[in-house]
Nucleic acid binder design. Structure first.
Lengths: 304, 304
DNA sequence: AAATAATGTTGACTCAGTCATCATTTTACG
DNA sequence: CGTAAAATGATGACTGAGTCAACATTATTT
């Protein structure tokens, strides 16, 4: 079930955008084209040998309207229609030279108008706007389900991991900043003592956004240690946790560890199940008071 | 000058949104209202005693069109118009009972349609969509320049600060992950030894987004230490750095420190100027090799 | 070979959007 | 105070958008 808040947010945006649509339209500058005409021109300029039906589909416009629009363009000598040699019923549409130069002028003026609009925004909002615009473009464009990808570490990742985990566990379990400090320290140590031969870290991303992580560090007595595994709630149930753990195990094996240890807490049920599935065995349970709660720490291990 | 990339991003979004607009419209469900009519209904339902001119302004529609639309609504007994007792030329518009129930039904069905659309998205994208929609709504709605606000620390802040600084200095100065580890360690220590009486941290926000930070910790011999000051590039030039430093100084004074120290690097010119303006004095310059570069560390101090 | 589907076009109709005009009323200003 | 300027609400005229139905023609499927 979709939360009403989500629906409201989208509807509010829809309203605002529609009310301010003029600000983003070609109508602003007194161009000789309507919005629909400009859209048709854009498609014709950026694709080759379109048919009318194809135009109607991509722009979600009425075929009849396309037909009439094209007729107007042909009359103005902006568009040339020639019969498709392969399909007798199809007509291949393309811009004439005049059509192309007219489109270029239109393009120029919309860019100028858009730039003027962006000029009015403070830089912080300009950045937010761009990011939001790119996000929405992706969401409306990519119909394929987003694939989670694993990647290596980049600058800024460590802090982000600590931050997301701190927020998550504060929200879900009420853990205090003590956990955040622990995570920050683990990550600081990770980098300070970093040995590329036998240590590593992975970030899981969807649409370029971090949705999970895992780290492999050197543990005690020839054992590797898996640390800071987490998956964003919204990204759970897609096997991302399994993927992260599997990757970590393989890397631990390649690094020559004889055993892979990890320490977790009994309340982290989702993580526990992932460890179980991966073959880890629960060795020890030790109650402790940390992060503002009475918890049961668990030591798990996997022979490699 | 606005980067062409920003303009392209916004235009691309504009195109995609327009092409898919139908998906977000009242047209989807076979409602008896056009988009414009639905917008007028919405305004009438959510505000009281609107005049036609007011409607035309908020919806950016032609007064003539409003006039005709209202006439249709009055004929359908959805809207009642009564003369304004104060202004003889004004007409106060409001929904009739039938208008209200019709609007409620419309509202219901658009919410359902919107929910159905959100259902098709994977949860990760749903979250992104919501966030982006809220951002854009704010940007198009708030015309007032965004005010930077200072706030205390919340879960997740520490990691975020470390992450942003690491990314920033990696980008601007090519600093290595060594800096990230240092930042993470400083923040871990901050929390581990946290003494609320004489230590503190502040986050500067614009539109709820972090754009800067500063921390006050206990230093040596009764002195306070200012650490991890930073301001996002896009938010610079608005006095946020000054505000952060001033806040930190005041807090240091209140905590009873006799002196406020800080350590920085000569390349961080913007920060240096902030310290100078705040009255800090450069005490010592020590060359060092850190973060992958030859740097000159600087010790500054301010008598309180 | 016949049924089915897609393509491009046209007619009919309503609403959107723009522009000009107008009567009326309110506000601003010398 | 009186007049000029501005705002309000309405209307006519016109083009294009959007929807629906119909149609001839050509491809595709069975």
């Amino acid at each position: 079930m979709i939360p009403a808040d989500d629906i409201d947010a989208l509807r509010a945006f829809n309203r605002v955008y529609t009310n301010r649509l003029g600000l983003l339209d070609t109508k602003l500058d007194n161009s000789p084209f309507t919005l629909s005409e400009a859209r048709v021109l854009y498609e014709l300029a950026n694709r080759t040998d379109l048919t009318g039906a194809e135009l109607a589909r991509t722009l979600r416009m009425d075929p009849g309207q396309i037909s009439r629009t094209i007729k107007r363009f042909v009359a103005r000598d902006l568009v040339a229609a020639r019969d498709d040699p392969a399909h007798g019923r199809h007509q291949l549409l393309s811009l004439t030279d005049q059509g192309r130069s007219t489109y270029a002028a239109l393009e120029q003026s919309t860019c100028t108008a858009m730039g003027a609009l962006l000029e009015t925004l403070p830089p912080v909002r300009r950045d937010s706007l761009r990011h939001a615009a790119e996000t929405l473009t992706r969401i409306f464009t990519d119909t394929a389900p987003p694939q989670p990808v694993l990647r290596g570490l980049r600058p800024g990742d460590l802090g982000l991991v600590a931050s997301r985990q701190a927020m998550l566990y504060a929200q879900e379990y009420g853990w205090t900043a003590e956990f955040e400090a622990l995570a920050a320290r683990i990550l600081a140590d990770f980098h300070t003592n970093f040995d590329p031969a036998c240590e590593d870290g992975w970030i899981a991303e969807i649409d370029g956004q971090m949705v999970g992580s895992v780290f492999l560090v050197r543990g005690e007595a020839g054992a590797g240690k898996l640390r800071l595994l987490y998956v964003e709630p919204a990204a759970r149930g897609q096997g991302i946790g399994d993927l992260l753990v599997r990757t970590c195990i393989e890397r631990a094996r390649a690094a020559g560890y004889t055993r892979l240890d990890l320490w977790t807490n009994s309340v982290l049920g989702a993580a526990r199940r992932i460890y179980q599935r991966a073959g880890f065995v629960l060795l020890e349970e030790v109650p402790h008071h940390s992060f503002g709660h009475d918890l049961i720490g668990e030591s798990w291990s996997l022979a490699l």
